[in-house]
Amino acid sequence: MSTDNQGPVWEVFIQTKAGKPYRHVGAVHAYDKEMAMENARDLYTRRSEGTAIWLVKAEDIVASQPEDMGAFFEPSNDKPYRHPTFYVMPEGAKHI
């Protein structure tokens, strides 16, 4: 019975309407792509929550690790000049 896990896990991303970004909403279990798509539709769009769905097999996702969060993102911490607020504008400058 140990293999009876209702299929692999697929992460589900929904676009609420055209032009909006896809957002993670949860996951489904399914044995193939078509079934995953139907399960995701039935589970996550019962009230017209979306116009499009992306599915990714959970095992195919590459994710950063929480423990190296600090060091991994460190390179951007000492570059405040990437932000517009870094710059001093002359008094009275408009539309900039």
Binding site: T3, D4, Q6, G7, A30, Y31, D32, M35
Partner: peptide, 8 residues
């Protein structure tokens, strides 16, 4: 489930 798994 067994049939769906085999099909998958």
């Amino acid at each position: 489930r067994a049939a769906a798994e085999a099909y998958g």
